[in-house]
């Protein structure tokens, strides 16, 4: 399933870039993040506890950042699995100047397997949008805290 959208930060590109790729800020912004361990450069092991449509569960997985083009774009990949099934997602994140702030546009796709796919696929898009929204809102807070 394809996803895309964008979010506006009232902060300069350098500050947004720095926050988006900072492990502490990432951990704080990931919805339901219970564990976030760096395993290598731009690679993390994570534990997330989230509900996707009606199906709540704990997911173990990895987060990777690739195709880094500083202050311009990077690719974020999340791969996780738990009792309700597996979720794989990858998105290209692009940062552009937007007025005095920064626009972050994301586009990518999500694949699901297991109960999430069978029972939740109808709502997967909505849930993903909601979780991504939460992520950016929290990231916005992080950017503002850093600026303060």
């Amino acid at each position: 399933m394809e996803i895309s959208g964008e979010y506006h930060f009232d902060a300069p590109r350098s500050a947004v870039w720095a926050a988006l790729l900072d492990p502490d800020a990432l951990q704080a912004a990931m919805p339901g993040c219970e564990r976030f361990e760096e395993t290598g450069p731009d690679a993390y092991d994570i534990t997330l506890r989230v509900g996707i449509s009606a199906i709540k569960g704990t997911y173990e997985g990895t987060v990777k950042v690739t195709e880094r083009s500083p202050e311009d774009s990077y690719r974020l990949s999340v791969d996780g699995g738990g009792k309700p099934g597996k979720v794989q997602g990858t998105a290209l994140m692009q940062l552009t100047e937007d007025g005095g702030g920064t626009r972050v546009a994301y586009s990518g796709d999500i694949k699901a397997q297991g109960a999430i796919a069978r029972l939740g696929s109808r709502l997967l898009g909505g849930s993903a949008k909601m979780l991504i929204g939460q992520f950016f809102k929290e990231m916005d807070k992080q950017v503002k805290q850093r600026a303060a």
């Binding site: 399933m1 694949k111 699901a112 397997q113 109960a115 796919a117 069978r118 029972l119 696929s121 109808r122």
Partner: peptide
């Protein structure tokens, strides 16, 4: 089924 062969009508909800 979706393009990955996932059954997306897997309950009476769908």
């Amino acid at each position: 089924y979706d393009e990955d062969g996932q059954l997306v009508t897997g309950s009476f909800m769908d």
